[in-house]
Amino acid sequence: MKEILLSVFCIWTLAIQGQLAYEGQVVDAQSGNPIPFVNIGVVGRGIGTVSREDGRFLLEFRPGEVESGDLLRISSLGYTPREIPLAHLDTRLKVFVFRLEPEPISLSEVVVSSAELMEVEEEHGYPDLIGKGIGYWKDSVALGGELASLIRMRKGLYRLNSLFFHILENPSDSVQLRINFYSPNRNGGIPGENLNKSGKNMLHTVKAGTIFSVIDLKPYDLWVRDDFIVSLELLGVHGTPQVMLSLPAGEQPSGKSYRRYASQGDWETIDGAVVGFSVQATLFTDNPRRMPSPREVRKRLRSESEISGIVFSAGPALRGQKISQPMEGATVINYTRNTTVQTDKWGRYRMKVAKGDILGVSYPGKYQLIVEVTEPRNFNFQLHSSRELNMQRIDAE
């Protein structure tokens, strides 16, 4: 198996003599409330970190690693970034407080057309890289370090619905990530503008034992017309001082991946290799040639089967036996085909699926269940509130 140096996040804590330490908090300039997961770093130096949920941070580095003209950059989704020369910081202060001004929320582009737009469900990216390589970083990476890959798209108007990726190894209890979507910068194609204009961080936690992750992108209203870049950003690790989150990766002649080692650091480009990110998207088009051919439609219909079942939770014990309670209004999503159904008052659902489809079953207050269809069969789902079920396969009994 060929190994491609891309995507393991590693953290080491080092005790360094003469190390500078900037401790502080980032708050909303209008409300005074702390801002979580803010990127703080020295621009272009690979020195950076991410604030905690209470907005507090600790930035450490050696004096020889920076120069007097270097800039400290503080940025967060939904806020105007700040850049402050390091020479202007009052080193007599024990704790710095940085205030960021909120930016107006930018709504997605409204598409106006006299023609009726047709919707085509498509999958893009690299879903089939398992067994072809392992992506990882060997070097130390600070909070805010990112791994990204370019997803190539045929030109058109797309709404991004779901992101998928497999996890090959994660020895920690959990790794907290932020998902970022970027447009390629015109100067060299590196990640440029963040496409998430919702003002909401796209957070995702990979727990021990998770082998497949699905992120619902609809709440973030992401639209693209061309190639885009998806990245994983490291926000925290729990249960071990060193985290190694490895993902499927592989060679791709026209592929491009990118990495940076800390918040506000420079991006490095890796040509000819990609990480196993894939995206389900809806194409909106007035061109009939972009629609699936009749042959493709027939092939898809032949692969589909209708399954049904009940979504339920374990109720209170009666005479030592737990009672199953059907769940009305539970949501069953076929992420692969972008279809959604709700359960009726008896907890029943019906849905068309095909082998390989990824389903999500959820209900408020319960952990979401992610399942992969290995054979289209009727299946009942039990949702839990006490523990998370990360991956289960639908198999014939």
Rank of each mutant, 00 (worst) to 15 (best):
V8H: 11
C10Q: 14
Y22G: 06
Q30W: 09
N39W: 10
V42R: 09
R45N: 00
T49H: 07
V50R: 01
R52G: 10
F61P: 00
E65Y: 05
E67V: 15
S76I: 08
S76M: 11
Y79S: 07
Y79W: 06
T80V: 11
R92P: 05
F98N: 04
V110M: 09
V111K: 06
V120L: 05
S140E: 15
L143W: 02
R152G: 01
K155S: 14
G156W: 09
D173S: 14
V175N: 01
Q176C: 07
I179Y: 02
F181R: 01
Y182L: 06
N185L: 02
G188S: 11
G192T: 04
L195F: 01
K197T: 14
G199D: 08
V206S: 08
F212W: 10
V214N: 05
D216C: 04
D216H: 10
Y220T: 09
L222I: 12
L234W: 09
L234M: 11
P241M: 13
S254M: 12
G255E: 05
S263Q: 00
D266V: 15
W267C: 02
T269N: 07
I270V: 12
D271I: 14
V274H: 04
A281V: 11
F284R: 00
S293Q: 08
R295S: 15
R295P: 05
E296S: 11
K299V: 13
S303F: 00
S305E: 12
E306H: 06
P326V: 08
G329S: 05
N334A: 11
Y335S: 10
T336V: 06
Q342M: 12
R348E: 08
M351Y: 12
G360N: 04
G360M: 02
Y363F: 09
P364R: 03
Y367L: 08
E375H: 05
N380K: 01
S385V: 14
L389W: 03
Q392V: 07
